[in-house]
Design a binder for these strands. Structure first.
Lengths: 210, 210
DNA sequence: CTAACCTTTGTCCATTCGGTCAAAAATGCG
DNA sequence: CGCATTTTTGACCGAATGGACAAAGGTTAG
């Protein structure tokens, strides 16, 4: 359903399209869709604007291709949540994986955050489709864990939201995190600190033992 | 430091400036700074563009005035965190207040989110100044609670981040929350569910009792 | 080598956008 | 009322932006 004929993709096309998407990730994640210009992306990709438009005919096409390509990567951590593993361990691992994503792929995180902030105008179908299905599936897994008494009785949907929120916060709100922590605590160690904290929070909560 | 002479503010000026800021909150929070146009704001405020520019001479002036006016409101919940109260109760209340803000002032939440996502170019000084001071102060309060054994040994900075992240998530990522919950669970009850969930999470964690 | 195809570029265009300006309309005050 | 001040508007401008296009420059297969 993308043009009437198949696309034969030459070597150059593959390479250039890749370079454009990489540049577009940089630009879109930093300035949002409306805040980014084709010229910026072209410059970042090391080519002229008309040349870029030869590979993607519209600005919107770049954006869509980018999001399409990223969605799988983005959902991978949740997909790995294993029904058969030990529940507490599985959740711990999921939180760790998500936090690593925030650390290693902040541009991807910000791209999605930007899109959703504006009401997800271009990806709402994906959220209601792929994403919802995946979440529904994992919610069932968690409900099983609750029934088995392996984790506390809690709301699986909101648990997933809480994990998303707390981990992605370190990518999306990085500027604020750094500003508040200051130069000393805001260095590279902040992800270690966050990992330790989140583990304690999600597993044990704040009430003091004894 | 804003013009050499004081501004006498007539009645009409007060009213119109108010209307403009209200309209600007609507527009800026929905589309971000670059994504919003003066025409949109003027239309939303029910006046012509040149007329709007009579009250705020630049687009940036509107934005700055808006943020300035909102910052106090935004930080109020944290300010209320009371050193002398019962720690668990205080934290519970803080979470509830923040969640109410996400429910009742989603535009304000999205405005700040948008700004910080782009690296907080226009409000970084405020984050490093007012916000950091307030956080530093409350961190000391929490450290006192920890020393007194009233809450678990945890990282107060990241605790604050976690509360911000989980509560604001329901405003900033509303589109995603609704998409994932679907029409039935995504209705008005979602804030009640979130409140119950977050209380359980922060206080008790996920490990099952017994 | 050469013809067919792919890639790149300079130029151009219409629209949008932030902002100006002078003149008209409304308001308020003595 | 009459005059000064404030408010509103229509017309306009330059810069930026998304995109079109045809011509020029490369690449590759026969």
């Amino acid at each position: 359903m993308e043009g009437s004929a198949a696309r034969p993709r030459t070597r150059i096309q593959t390479e250039k399209r890749e370079a454009i998407l990489e540049a577009a990730l940089d630009v879109f994640s930093a300035h949002g869709y409306r805040g980014s210009t084709i010229d910026q992306i072209a410059a970042a990709a090391g080519m002229s604007k008309p040349n870029l438009l030869y590979y993607f005919r519209r600005k919107d096409d770049i954006y869509k291709a980018l999001i399409q390509r990223l969605l799988d990567t983005w959902l991978a951590p949740l997909r790995e949540l294993d029904d058969d593993g030990d529940p507490i361990t599985e959740l711990r691992s999921y939180i760790r994986r998500k936090l690593e994503m925030a650390r290693d792929f902040p541009r991807e995180s910000r791209l999605f955050a930007n899109e959703i902030l504006q009401g997800a105008p271009r990806i709402l179908p994906m959220l209601e489709g792929e994403l919802k299905s995946l979440v529904d599936e994992k919610v069932l897994v968690m409900k099983g864990w609750i029934r088995a008494g392996k984790i506390a009785r809690t709301d699986p949907w909101h648990l997933i939201f809480a994990i998303w929120a707390t981990t992605q916060h370190y990518a999306d709100f990085d500027a604020q995190v750094r500003a508040v922590l200051g130069p000393d605590r805001g260095g590279d160690g902040r992800f270690e600190d966050a990992a330790r904290f989140l583990e304690g929070l999600f597993i044990e909560g704040l009430r003091p033992k004894r």
